[in-house]
């Protein structure tokens, strides 16, 4: 029964949507403190290559590899974030784009370690690994009426979904807290923020590093979902694509990244004809959004409106009791 419902192709697309949501969040969280970073593709590459090399060459467990990727991306975030404090707006964007290119060129040129432009294949697959572990304790996907490959796609999707839900909760809560207010204050007026006792340096580096870690996580997951990575996956096209998720969906709110990544991942999948022109479409979208709705499709006002409606309905609810 379940077996007929589960289509590996759809699950694969859904898994990419989830990874792209994490990437969108990485832009959102850096922008929250007013920093426009185009380094996501670079941080993603750091995460992806770290875990790919560790797991393929040293048979490190996946979880350890992924965590190492996230940590290393975070360390790079701090290293890039601190000197970037002097840079604003477009200058920061260019510098971080430069970082991404440095990472990519480094990977291409250190063939002995990274296999250069050819890329790394045979990276342990997340779903396969989980299934192997489960089979050891006597689990058989047949119990669920699933073929092995259906099960691996399904379990990857579920795992990613859980990760995304946890991250969305994490960043929504952070937004409505002392830390989130410090980010917004810095975003709106750095000098006023400092005058209110906010350590601007600390919070800017924190938000930049969180963004780097998210991109690193997305990269690491990407490596283990696809099982093949190459420098071509982390070019500046990717950086622009990631930026588009957030800018189109809405860069002020967590929901914006979710909407943007979902919509823009589904679009080329559903309309095959468009697929070829996707970068052109991203370009047009960016220009149109900047001109007419710079805050993105979903903005803070919309979220407030939802909240107020919800609040009112709850009020009605209690009155009726």
């Amino acid at each position: 029964m379940l077996g007929e419902l589960i289509n590996p192709y759809y699950l694969q697309v859904a898994s990419f949507i989830l990874i792209n949501i994490i990437l969108g969040l990485s832009i959102y969280v850096t922008l929250a403190s007013g920093q426009l970073s185009l380094g996501s593709a670079g941080f993603m590459a750091v995460g992806a290559y770290t875990t790919a090399l560790l797991t393929t060459n040293f048979e490190v467990p996946l979880l350890v590899g992924i965590l190492a990727g996230v940590m290393l991306a975070g360390i790079f975030g701090i290293i890039v974030g601190i000197p970037s404090l002097r840079l604003r707006g477009v200058f920061l964007a260019i510098a971080t784009l430069g970082f991404g290119e440095i990472v990519r060129v480094f990977i291409v040129n250190t063939e002995s370690l990274t296999k250069g432009a050819i890329g790394i294949s045979g990276i342990p697959q997340l779903g396969r690994e989980i299934l192997d572990k489960l089979e050891v304790i006597g689990f058989d996907p047949e119990i669920l009426g699933l073929k092995a490959n259906q099960f691996t796609f399904l379990i990857v999707f579920i795992l990613l979904l859980i990760i995304v839900i946890v991250l969305v909760c994490f960043f929504s809560r952070q937004k409505n807290s002392r830390v989130g207010r410090a980010f917004s204050a810095i975003n709106m007026d750095e000098q006023a923020a400092a005058s209110m006792g906010i350590n601007v340096t600390y919070y800017k580096v924190l938000s930049f590093t969180q963004g780097a870690m998210l991109a690193g996580l997305a990269g690491a997951l990407y490596a283990h979902v696809l099982s093949y990575i190459s420098p071509a996956d982390f070019t500046y096209h990717k950086a622009v694509e990631i930026l588009t998720f957030s800018v189109f969906g809405g860069s002020e709110v967590v929901g914006g990244a979710i909407f943007g990544a979902t919509f823009l991942t589904l679009l080329p999948e559903t309309l095959r004809a468009i697929s070829e022109y996707r970068y052109m479409i991203y370009g047009i979208l960016l220009v149109v959004m900047m001109a007419y709705r710079p805050q993105g499709v979903i903005d803070e006002q919309m979220m407030r409106w939802f909240k107020r409606r919800k609040g009112r309905r709850q009020q009605h609810g209690t009155e009726n009791k």
Binding site: R181, A185, M188, D189, A192, E300
Partner: peptide
């Protein structure tokens, strides 16, 4: 501040 510096979107 002389030239008011609130957090406008808060």
């Amino acid at each position: 501040f002389q030239n008011i510096r609130l957090f406008p979107e808060m």
